[in-house]
Design a protein around this nucleic acid. Structure first.
Lengths: 121, 121
DNA sequence: TCATAAGTAGGAATAATTCCTACTTATATA
DNA sequence: TATATAAGTAGGAATTATTCCTACTTATGA
């Protein structure tokens, strides 16, 4: 993967973002710096960046959300305002015995909590 | 929500399924019993059944998977053969302190593990 | 048994994502 | 530094999953 201005901008947007943007939101932000960047370019680069483990992504409500925060963390999704809150991991969340029982090699974990955040109670 | 033959068949398919089918797979199975059931009917009923808490669903790899197993469970997703394995929940998986700290009301939890299953090592 | 509101089939519309093509650019190397 | 070339891009077409629309059918309460 060689250097490209478009990819740098997209990576920068995700490193700065705190709101887990979808592809079309990334496109809107990128257009502020590269006015005629295309949807194809955004999708291609998001996929490449994810394959190279420079960003990550996950699904919520049928939409694909991208994240430049690579430190392992959980997510809380507010069912009312759609806010996504990053939750730190500081407890073991699944037992070693269970993994052994099913004979799995676990390469990634994604825990999602759904409900109402403090603003929406 | 009143009785319909189509909805009964779709619910039956999901109650019998052990493979977390997507909407198009549900359609294929339903066609064996109702040859000209339509995509619209399948989607409408999947949404209605989920709203009525008779089935549940979750996203993997961008695809929407439906599940008639309502007992709370985790999922393991094999990155190689795409098998999905149901994992029982028998440990607390997140601390009460963390929930209190962020002042969340948690209504649902979804934990997904990714990796290779015993067949694919 | 009948009125009617809910449900259906079939296909059109929409939205998210990928694909295609001709043009542009980063970069290895001569 | 010049240049060949493979990777990247813009713009738009194609694809895919899902929802919407319309005229017809059916479950159900009275």
């Amino acid at each position: 993967m060689r250097f490209s201005h478009q990819r740098e901008i997209i990576l920068e947007i995700l490193k700065e973002a705190r709101d887990h943007p979808t592809a079309d939101i990334v496109l809107n932000r990128a257009r502020k710096k590269i006015p005629n960047i295309s949807f194809g370019t955004v999708y291609r680069n998001l996929n490449q960046l994810e394959e190279s483990n420079l960003i990550t992504s996950y699904n919520f409500d049928g939409a694909h959300h991208y994240d430049g925060n690579l430190s392992p963390h959980h997510h809380f999704y507010c069912n009312k305002c759609s806010t996504i809150i990053d939750l730190p991991i500081d407890d073991p969340i699944i037992s070693h015995e269970l993994i052994q029982k099913f004979d799995l090699s676990v390469e990634g974990i994604e825990l999602s909590l759904y409900g109402h955040c403090s603003n929406c109670k």
